[in-house]
């Protein structure tokens, strides 16, 4: 048997074949996409991982002036119970004009923390304790004059000397570009508990 070639059918059938081949491929591509999207989606963190991703911290044992650092999503999160004197230093650093971003214009924190305290409740600072420069864990130095004679209290990074105030706002002259990141969290002073839920997506960790 010889097969009748395209030319013997004329152009009509060629167009028809081309059209059908294109249409079938197009629908086939949609089908392939329909399979591919859920498959790739399945590699997202599972609900179990997400359930384990938020950390709740009991605030009762943290006395004024004290801090705790808890692991959250494999990152250290510091919670400081700031005294009125400590809060007063935040204004002082701003008046001195030594901060790179005193008004927290860079979205290193969720909108509800965009204030000089960088927190939901002024007394309670909740932030990721990772230096914005190259990911080291800064030392917490709350004592006045402990790092330099002018030191009002804050964070000092052991790696490259970045300095931050008690709201983790970066001090001029530090290699770190931005303030330290603040995650999304919920805090209740009634229940005395803080729940760190997820990373604030716009924040730059390090």
């Amino acid at each position: 048997m010889t097969i009748v070639t395209d030319s013997e059918h004329g152009h009509k059938n060629i167009t028809r074949r081309r059209f059908l081949a294109a249409a079938t491929s197009a629908v086939g591509a949609v089908v392939a996409g329909m399979v591919a999207v859920p498959l790739v989606d399945s590699l997202e963190p599972t609900a179990a991982a997400e359930a384990a991703s938020s950390t709740t911290v009991d605030l009762t044992p943290i006395e004024p002036g004290m801090q705790v650092t808890v692991p959250w999503q494999k990152k250290p999160v510091i919670i400081i119970n700031r005294t009125p004197e400590m809060l007063a230093t935040l204004k002082e650093t701003m008046q001195k004009g030594i901060l790179k971003d005193p008004l927290c214009k860079v979205p290193q924190q969720p909108p509800y923390c965009t204030n000089m305290y960088r927190s939901r409740v002024p007394e309670w600072y909740v932030g990721i304790r990772i230096c914005n420069h190259l990911c080291c864990i800064p030392h917490y130095r709350p004592k006045k004059g402990s790092v330099a004679p002018w030191w009002l209290g804050g964070f000092h990074c052991p790696c490259h000397g970045s300095m931050y105030d008690l709201s983790a706002r970066v001090i001029q002259g530090s290699p770190a570009p931005h303030n330290m990141a603040v995650p999304e969290y919920e805090l209740s002073t009634e229940k005395m508990s803080a729940t760190i839920t997820h990373m604030y997506p716009k924040a730059h960790l390090c």
Binding site: T2, I3, V4, H9, N13, R16, L20
Partner: peptide, 16 residues
């Protein structure tokens, strides 16, 4: 669509 595509090709054999 695949059925019509198949038919558009296999018409060659029917004609024969």
């Amino acid at each position: 669509l695949a059925y019509f595509l198949k038919a558009a090709y296999w018409i060659d054999l029917k004609k024969k």
